[in-house]
Amino acid sequence: MALDVATTGAGVTPVPMEQPDVTRNIVVPRRHPGRWLAVAVLAILALQFAQAISVNPNFHWDVYLTYLFSPQVVRGVGWTLLLTVVAMTVAIVVAGLLVVVRDTDNPILRGIAYAWVWFFRGTPVYTQLLFWGLFAVLFPNLSLTVPFGPEIVSVETKYIVTPALAAILGLGFNESAYLTEIFRAGFNSIDRGQAEAAQALGMRRAKIWWRILMPQAMRVIIPPTGNEAIGMLKMTSLVLAIPFTLDLTFATNAISNRIYLPIPLLMVAATWYLAITSLLMVGQFYLERHFGKGVSVHPARVE
């Protein structure tokens, strides 16, 4: 209750005033019964699916556990990781060079870069791997000669282009064409005025790329490149075309052909691919967070 002050000749007399009754608005959170219903239905389906798989004798879980960490499978996992890392490194280096070449004023170099992307994006990766597998048959010898003159040195191709090198070149060159477009999109997302301002300050071209363009472009480049790395991991299963006989897919196929049980060995391969993919996704998350400092990457949520 508030007090009003009335002034009279005898002095100041406080007069009570009635306070208007104000009802406060209480905010009630919006209820989402549909979400809980969907969660309940999905939980029931998931439990039924897990039960159906776990008690099904056709999956041969004892065979799955026997070969999950067998030496042959673990060695295949190691070779698959090595192929993924080395081929992805080759692809990143080649793609970076192609992006720089396509930004030059030399029309010949630009034409070579465009032809590279056109060819490797336009032909299937399995066909490219077959070509690299037959490279030693198509070119039995690699030689260095004087033009229209004698041969200086010659070596058999099979000692240079081994199955491992053929797999790395086939995967790396194919992936470089896709990464070139990803890198180009990342650099094109940056305002060209920044590069022009750096040139006006006297910065060298290489320093502009490394200190100004690259850090900003990485925010756009990292997510699709992470997806390409995961795709490269699974693409290593195609190196059977070379043939490369040390990867995970070949190891599990060899065991399944020997014991005539393909399903448990397919699950072994799927488990390892899923585990490696999960690690790659964690690494991608931290890279995105590192290069996205100071920039909000979360879209607005609509209730």
Rank of each mutant, 00 (worst) to 15 (best):
A6N: 15
T23S: 11
I108P: 10
G193K: 04
K293A: 10
Q284L: 08
A198V: 01
Q72R: 13
S176P: 03
D247F: 07
G186F: 13
D4S: 08
I212E: 14
A300Y: 10
L240A: 14
T89F: 14
Y273H: 03
F187P: 00
W116L: 03
S296K: 13
M281I: 15
I92S: 12
A177N: 02
V74L: 11
S154Q: 09
W36T: 15
H60D: 14
R121C: 07
P299R: 09
G186Y: 06
N141C: 00
I208Q: 15
T89L: 15
A241H: 00
F49V: 15
G78K: 03
V117G: 00
L280P: 05
I168L: 06
T180M: 02
T252M: 02
P264D: 02
I44E: 06
T249S: 08
V5M: 12
L37Q: 05
P71G: 06
A95Y: 04
I242G: 01
S70W: 00
N25R: 15
L246P: 00
N188Q: 11
I26R: 11
W118C: 04
R121K: 05
V27T: 14
T23D: 10
N58H: 13
W36Q: 06
I160T: 10
A275Q: 04
I182Y: 03
I212M: 10
D4E: 15
P29Y: 08
I108K: 12
L279R: 07
Y126C: 04
I44Y: 09
E181C: 05
A300V: 10
R75A: 15
I221S: 01
I108C: 10
F244Y: 09
I108E: 14
V302K: 15
M232A: 05
P29E: 09
E18V: 10
W79G: 01
V12H: 06
L144C: 04
L81D: 00
T245R: 13
D4L: 07
H290K: 14
I255V: 13
K158D: 12
R258Q: 15
L261S: 08
T145G: 15
V22M: 15
L98H: 01
V86M: 04
F139V: 12
G294F: 04
F139Y: 14
M17A: 15
N257C: 00
E228Q: 12
P124Q: 06
E196I: 02
T89E: 07
P243A: 13
A115Q: 05
P243T: 09
L47Y: 10
M267L: 13
N25C: 07
T271I: 02
W209C: 08
S143G: 09
V63Y: 05
A52M: 10
A269H: 00
